[in-house]
Design a protein around this nucleic acid. Structure first.
Lengths: 235, 235
DNA sequence: AGCCGCGATATTGTCTACAATCTTAGAACC
DNA sequence: GGTTCTAAGATTGTAGACAATATCGCGGCT
């Protein structure tokens, strides 16, 4: 019953296990394809052929087409006119670019949060900070990575800055693949947790400028780490 | 022969003169619609009905649909599921948000430019700076506004930062309408030109941090001006 | 008179078929 | 043997028709 691996011609590997999804009944093809991409079931640069996707998700080609258009808008797929769509590959250089942009935008968000922090929110951040420290202490990198994302998301939400959130969401979606690269390094986590603590502390102190600086310091450190890792891999 | 004003129900006004374009032969419907929007021929919040657009541009509804999807990706139109598309209206608050985000991203670009400035580029910027000053001196606000845009574009290009350029292009497209609001005020130009001079001087000095600060100062000033103008209009 | 449900209309979402375009393989030719 | 033209195949782009959904006005009920 295995529903057709989607075009293996260009890509080195095909989607991992079975099809990206099957039980899904009748509508959110966009979400299904997006999930498949961010989960890595479609490799970077893999061609996404409308007919194949149509078959795989049992939707019409028109539906798949709109989905691809939307995903292109999110920067997840690349559309070559008359040549088709493929999973957009983010090079390390681009990943660094994304981090550089994030410095400004996440800095802004953190500053906004620090400015308008309520007491409940403060308590929440304090808890988050302690949980992060604990998870690193125990060496639970998966949990730490989860808390990490939670912090990002929460900062974005509480900034109440729709434009910034939007930009960040888009950038984040594109770089999931590289994020993963660092999060699995215990040594990296030890440094990272300190930086995150600094960010949270600055927010708790309701000091916007300090928060911005802390975010910048953190992201610069991530950039550095990414450079190192890839330099080592290149050997 | 007047090719159907596109749905006037929701919008207070209909497209200005005739149709947004007619001679256009056979393909770039997306560009035509985008132009119509940024040129203000379709009012903010105006509904964009696929059938009407299809007739107006003599293209199939499928084509129009693709165009709308793309424009939605650029943030120019809003798509309400099952309810249709309309020209996205940018409120003053959103315009300010956009400017806030631009602080970080344009600051980054300016810094990059300052870092890698060649001598020819330096000469170009110096010329641009002098032209700007001259145009303000002569009270030629149209020319000043043009040079203004030219500066922005050039900084983006020379930053060689694809991600930042992308983000800025998107944000810029959305806020053209508000930009216009300030550019027609002589008093504003007098202040603005000083700030732009500061930016260029920092770039010429090849001082990234100074460039970033100058950009920030400028955009903060724009935000302030925008607040003032709208406060005055609200009276 | 006011509120609720029902039917007509307008508009988008989906599907199938066809046309245009690009890619690839093969044969003819130099 | 290599190169170029040609034709077949694969894939996207466009078109028109149908189905699903929302919007709005009318009539009935309380």
């Amino acid at each position: 019953m295995a529903p057709a691996a989607v075009n293996e011609a260009t890509a080195a590997v095909s989607p991992a296990g079975g099809a990206p999804s099957e039980g899904g009944a009748h509508a959110p093809v966009t979400d299904q394809i997006r999930d498949a991409i961010v989960r890595g079931e479609y490799a970077p640069n893999q061609r996404l052929i409308e007919a194949d996707l149509s078959a795989a998700f049992s939707a019409s080609r028109a539906t798949v087409r709109t989905a691809l258009l939307e995903l292109a808008g999110e920067g997840l797929v690349e559309r070559l006119p008359n040549k088709g769509s493929r999973v957009r590959a983010i090079s390390v250089d681009e990943a660094i670019e994304i981090l550089e942009v994030r410095i400004g935008v996440e800095g802004l968000c953190a500053a906004k949060v620090a400015e308008h922090l309520t007491d409940e929110q403060a308590a929440e951040f304090a808890r988050l900070r302690d949980d992060m420290a604990a998870s690193v202490e125990e060496g639970d990198l998966v949990e730490y990575s989860r808390l990490n994302r939670a912090l990002d998301v929460r900062v974005r939400e509480l900034s109440h800055h729709a434009t910034a959130s939007d930009v960040l969401a888009r950038l984040h979606a594109q770089s999931v693949r590289h994020q993963f690269r660092l999060s699995s390094r215990p040594a990296r986590a030890k440094v990272s947790v300190l930086e995150h603590t600094a960010i949270i502390d600055a927010i708790l102190a309701r000091d916007p400028e300090a928060a911005e600086r802390a975010v910048r310091a953190h992201l610069l450190s991530v950039i550095e780490a990414l450079r190192e890792v890839t330099a080592r891999e290149a050997v």
